[in-house]
Structures are given as C-alpha cells and as structure tokens.
C-alpha cells in the first residue's frame, strides 16, 4: 500500500492542522507549545514547528531518543543554511537542492534516533 508523496503530505498537513485546532480549543490559554508529539503502539510522531509555521515532522520508532533536538538542528543548521541562503531555492516551493538532501541525510544519520534501533 503506497501513496504519492504529495498525497501523504496533504494528509499529514490536514491531520496536524486538526490536532492543532483541537489542542487550541481544549487549552485556549496555553497555545505556546501546541502538539509536539504523539505515540501509537506502532510509532511515534514528533513535530517541531517554527514561529514561521514551518513544520518539521519525523515518524520514528516508539522509543527513539532525541528526535526533537534533531528536528531543531535540521531547521537551524540545514534548512536555514542550505535553503534560506541559497538563492536557487524559492520559499514555498519543493526543495530540489542536492546539497540540502545530502546535509539532511548526514544530520539524520548522526542523530541518536537513527542508531538507537540497533542498541
């Protein structure tokens, strides 16, 4: 059962949007944090959202450590560095830069969340 990347991101955005408005409604006074993660018995979803509403999402093994830290690093050291400062990458368009892909891969591989499964 596979779906296109486009379909998947559309569904994901819809779900995060609903989760966010749900959490805002049940806790209207504490909107700072919002939903940061949830766990099912199969996997854990971690969300890091910037003040500019960029959403970094990673689905991992239930016990994977340091996912939030990894996502923050992806923002500050990969996205800002290789997308924002790269005039070739236009905001709000899919990122095609190979350099970005390589750095993203490198950062994910270095995270404890990546290696913890073997341990």
């Amino acid at each position: 059962m596979t779906m296109s990347l486009e379909e998947e991101s559309r569904l994901l955005y819809g779900m995060l949007f609903s989760l966010k408005s749900f959490s805002n409604r049940i806790s209207p006074l504490d909107v700072q944090e919002g939903v940061q993660c949830y766990t099912t018995n199969k996997y854990k979803m971690t969300l890091f959202e910037t003040p500019t509403s960029l959403k970094f999402v990673c689905n991992t093994d239930v016990n994977a450590p340091g996912v939030n830290e990894m996502l923050q690093k992806l923002y500050t050291q990969v996205y800002v560095e290789y997308v924002i400062r790269n005039p070739e990458c236009k905001p709000a368009e899919p990122i095609t830069s190979e350099l970005f892909k390589a750095k993203l891969d490198e950062t994910v591989r270095m995270s404890p969340a990546f290696s913890s499964k073997a341990a």
Binding site: T50, P51, L54, Y79, I84, R85, P91
Partner: peptide, 17 residues
C-alpha cells in the same frame, strides 16, 4: 525579509510574539 526572519529565529531561538 521573508528569508532573513528564518535566519533570525534560528540564531536567536526567538519564540512567537
């Protein structure tokens, strides 16, 4: 400005206003 704000947030770990 659209790009610089991301740089600013990443550097100053600024939160929402």
């Amino acid at each position: 400005g659209v790009r610089l704000v991301e740089d600013f947030i990443a550097r100053s770990s600024a939160d929402k206003c």
